[in-house]
Design a binder for these strands. Structure first.
Length: 464
RNA sequence: UCCCCGAUAGCUCAAUGGUAGAGCAUCCGACUGUUAAUCGGACGGUUGUUGGUUCGAGUCCAACUCGGGGAGCCA
């Protein structure tokens, strides 16, 4: 006798097989006819399989009639075509063993819906719900697609370090990594903290980006990407920010900004297509239960070419829109959420890539244009989420790069290894970053980023 | 970090300053294959915390804690 998953048991090809199933009870309905229906789920798919438990089972009165939502069971039986509507198959049980109880007085999950705020307080149990099971499967699928897409295009996956001594982007609060005793810090004669005595002999932090390190491998292996956890100690309290999140950062030698934009567009579209093709049940669930406008929006993004608009053009559009903005619009001012959302959701009603921002608004590593005023930056904006990808062609001229560091108050002596990439065999190259949780928000229609990562870390919250 | 809103039964929510309620869940019972099954009954509360106003506070005021929405920072 085979042990099969709920996903397999739900398919009509399974009819006639005598099998074992293991999982968790979602609901039990007792019938007038002296038997019970059990909805069984094992996480293998969105749907449950209906178990028909006859009253003749030796433990029917003692066990089966008392199975509650959340109980774990092992079931033996035959898969049959279901005579009733609602499911193709059902399993007629010949034996049911309860593996674990879930007393209703203490088990917090019910078969009825819960608010996401409540489920966040039981993050260790929420993957047993429809929504969080679907999100876990989708998260896996997107991660797999990321590796598939880059592998097929000849990229190498580079493991960049989690601990770093360089503050990559010059901005953004960092988490410090130290073995020093905070209650008894060693001091230098000048009464400042003596980092010579720390584990790495100098201050160290959790990474905010693997970009600088992955550039080193792009400038030797050609096309590479890094994909891993990233940490920001910003005190951001929004539905779009986490202190710990996952980021994909491809970096390509010999790519200019246009190549970079083409790759970003193909990449996003591939992620959407794979989600729709390979997680159809879960995506249908999101479209039905989470956001009715989700599936039309995803299909629209899939079909439309991403518009490419310069920052300068975008500012002109915003100035001529006749709208009143909470934050002023003008060349040299950064675009705010309200501006980005207007462009992608109202003006263009399409994904938009904004390019060539003023040099003062962007980090030192972006290539300066011939006009001297703008840099080869690109931000991909999508309806519903806003900025989802940020990238640029990198500055490959050592002298310009060093000047840009000074311009932004960054000490070039700390980045000699990075400048070496321009001193020795420098090449044009480009890359971008995509937040995994941001793309999951976009794909699922979920509203809060804390609900698309298994165990969210945010200011004041690192439970579980 | 700033602005706004909220916190009442296990969950989702009601309750003019005057005895704290419903639905769901759970338990008991009824019901010829149910689909968030249905129907009847029972059980269930220091109204987030602390203080204040009042004859009387779930309700009004203050602070704090936690949560939500928006904003900034960004991915």
């Amino acid at each position: 006798m085979d042990t099969i998953s709920v996903a397999e048991a739900r398919k009509s090809e399974a009819v006639g097989r005598v099998v074992q199933l293991r999982g968790w009870v979602r609901t039990r309905r007792d019938s007038k006819g002296g038997f019970s229906f059990i909805e069984l789920n094992d996480g293998s798919c969105q749907g449950n399989v209906q178990i028909v438990a006859p009253g003749e089972l030796p433990n029917y009165d003692a066990v089966v009639k008392h199975l509650l939502t959340g109980a774990s069971v092992s079931i033996t039986g035959e898969v049959k075509a279901s005579p009733a509507k609602g499911q193709a198959t059902e399993v007629h049980a010949t034996a049911i063993t309860q593996l674990g109880d879930a007393p209703a007085e203490t088990y917090p999950l019910q078969k009825k819906g819960h608010t996401f705020e409540f489920l966040r307080t039981i993050a260790h149990l929420r993957p047993r719900t429809n929504t969080f099971g679907a999100l876990a499967r989708l998260r896996h699928r997107v991660s797999k697609t990321i590796h598939d897409f880059f592998d097929e295009q000849g990229f190498y996956y580079i493991h960049t370090p989690i601990i770093t001594a360089s503050d990559c982007e010059g901005a953004g609060a960092l988490f410090r990594v130290t073995t020093l005793d905070l209650d008894k810090l060693p001091l230098t004669p000048a009464k400042s903290v003596d980092y010579d005595q720390d584990f790495f002999g100098k201050p160290a932090f959790l990474t905010v980006s693997g970009q600088l390190q992955v550039e080193s491998f792009a400038c030797s292996l050609g096309k590479v990407y890094t994909f891993g956890p990233t940490f920001r100690a910003e005190n951001s309290n929004t539905p779009r920010h986490l202190a710990e999140f996952w980021m994909v950062e491809p970096e390509m030698a010999f790519f200019d900004l246009t190549d970079n934009m083409n790759l970003a567009e193909a990449f996003l579209k591939r992620i959407i297509r794979d989600a729709l093709d390979k997680c159809p049940e879960d995506m249908a669930f999101f479209g039905e239960r989470i956001d009715k406008t989700l599936l039309p929006r995803l299909h629209s993004v899939l079909e439309k070419p991403f518009l490419r608009v310069s920052y300068t053009e975008a500012v002109a559009i915003l100035e001529q829109s006749g709208k009143t903005w909470e934050y002023p619009v003008g060349w040299g001012r950064d675009l705010q959420s309200e501006h980005e959302r207007f462009l992608t959701e109202q003006h263009f009603q399409s994904p938009v890539i904004l390019t060539d921002y003023p040099r003062t608004l962007k980090p030192f590593y972006m290539k300066v244009n011939d006009d001297g005023k703008t840099v080869r930056a690109m931000d991909v904006l999508v309806p519903g989420v806003g900025e989802i990808i940020g990238g640029s062609q990198r500055e490959e001229r050592a002298d310009v790069l060093e000047q840009r560091m000074r311009e932004q108050g960054i000490d070039p002596t700390a980045y000699q290894w990075y400048l070496d990439l321009r001193r020795f065999g420098t090449v044009p190259h480009s890359g971008f970053g995509l937040g995994l949780e941001r793309i999951l928000l976009f794909l699922s229609g979920m509203a809060n980023i804390r609900d698309v990562i298994p165990f969210p870390r945010t200011p004041g919250n690192a439970e579980f």
